[in-house]
Design a protein around this nucleic acid. Structure first.
Lengths: 243, 243
DNA sequence: GCGAAAACGTATGGCGTCAGACTTTAAAGG
DNA sequence: CCTTTAAAGTCTGACGCCATACGTTTTCGC
């Protein structure tokens, strides 16, 4: 029993998140830009709006924008009609993703992924129990969206499922994971590595299970879906750390 | 697609964690004490050690300890051999259980329970995949422990499973739930209502599934275990609100 | 043109958090 | 009994983050 007490203790006294709020905002925006969610030349919300949405002060938002300007990810113009505009050099984005990935420890990556799979799987299971016809249509619509890049659809799909599950807590968790890991997990730099990657087929299977009310199947498929994505990430991580 | 874009954006620009570092430390320690992980009269690490382990300054730890003293959760002595000692007010806590329960809304209770079942179930499944013989022995030991009150054993059992799953994040979630709901969920006031309540039998079944490496079964049993506990809570809630 | 409006830019005072040095208390050990 | 020692308690200067102003730049609408 001594060991279990020790490990339980190490959980209680584990270090707090060491990132400052400004750093977190930088990461969120960098994620959104490199993810392609904010596209080239697009205008960000005003500093005041960003501050309100992030729940931080304008000073902190400005500090984050300074960092983004230094990394050439945004350009800022003054005056009426001014603001910060995305300048997405895809090469730099790719570089930033790779550096973030190599900074993550492998155990940490797997732990986060386990947690993510637990939440996404539970959301899929609940969605199967609670979805009505309209919900199914909305989910299919998101998956069928071919307007944007593939990885954007990936994240939107999982968010939609979480919304259908009607669990405020699980939805909140999904949102947290999307910020923490989603950018890496569904990143385009992974998709070249494996030609068998077919998210639409996997999503259709999950959606079908949800529509059929088969919660256990929907969960299993979702977990496998995430697991294979994690394996791709781990492979890339290994090639980065030990080339 | 408008909807999916909107929800994706809301993820990027979602509010940051609003808690101060001191508040987070207070929550961690409160959870650990109400969980029973830090038992009555037990000594916490020194302020310096706590600061190092949490990765915060001593000032912040001290601020957290002030809050804990005000809530009568710890008592602090000065000088050599001094420090902060747990003061678990078990009697007072039990008296307030019913009022806490009737203040909880039913949807909120079910939502929290869904989340809890997702986490505990995932932990059981991972434990089945990762446990070795020693781990099984440790889990059995916890369940066999008849020294303390039943609800402490319950919480210790599920935490032990999470520890065996080797997931720091899931274990931390378990502790959070135990603080939030565990006191109610495994409370002795529920056990008189239903004579068929036999946690040891249910635990033995879960442990056997983990030992057999049957993750899906371990998860299903864990989910049912929690679900039945929740049903007892809901029943009691109804009798309290509409007697 | 020219004022109003909308954005970024700048400044101030206050609070939370930090590292570090120092003081006080009280037990342990010679 | 008295020194040592380990702990809580106190103080200081610096930095991050906050709200709230006020200033500056640019464009829009009249």
């Amino acid at each position: 029993m001594g060991t279990s007490r020790a490990s339980a203790r190490s959980v209680v006294f584990a270090p707090l998140d060491p990132h400052s709020r400004a750093e977190t905002v930088v990461r969120r925006l960098t994620d959104a830009i490199t993810f392609g969610l904010l596209t080239d030349a697009e205008q960000l919300p005003s500093e005041t709006d960003l501050a309100a949405q992030f729940g931080v002060s304008r000073v902190t938002v400005r500090e984050a924008l300074v960092a983004l300007r230094q990394q050439n990810l945004v350009e800022t113009r003054r005056g009426r009609g001014g603001g910060s505009f995305v300048r997405a050099p895809t090469a730099a984005a790719d570089r930033s993703l790779r550096s973030r990935l190599s900074e993550l420890s492998l155990p940490n990556l797997r732990d986060t992924a386990d947690h993510y799979a637990a939440v996404a799987g539970a959301a899929a299971r609940l969605a199967a129990q609670r979805a009505d016809a309209d919900d199914i249509l909305r989910i299919e619509e998101v998956d069928a969206d071919v307007a944007g890049p593939l990885h954007r659809m990936e994240r939107a799909y999982h968010l939609e499922v979480a919304a259908v599950a009607q669990s405020a807590r699980l939805a909140r968790e999904e949102i947290r994971f999307a910020g923490e890991l989603g950018t890496l997990l569904w990143s385009p730099i992974l998709q070249t590595a494996d030609s068998t990657y077919d998210p639409h087929a996997e999503h259709r299977a999950i959606t079908a299970a949800i529509a059929a009310g088969d919660g256990d199947l929907a969960r299993r498929l979702t977990e496998e879906h995430i697991e294979t994505a994690v394996e791709r990430l781990v492979t890339l991580h290994l090639t980065l750390v030990e080339p």
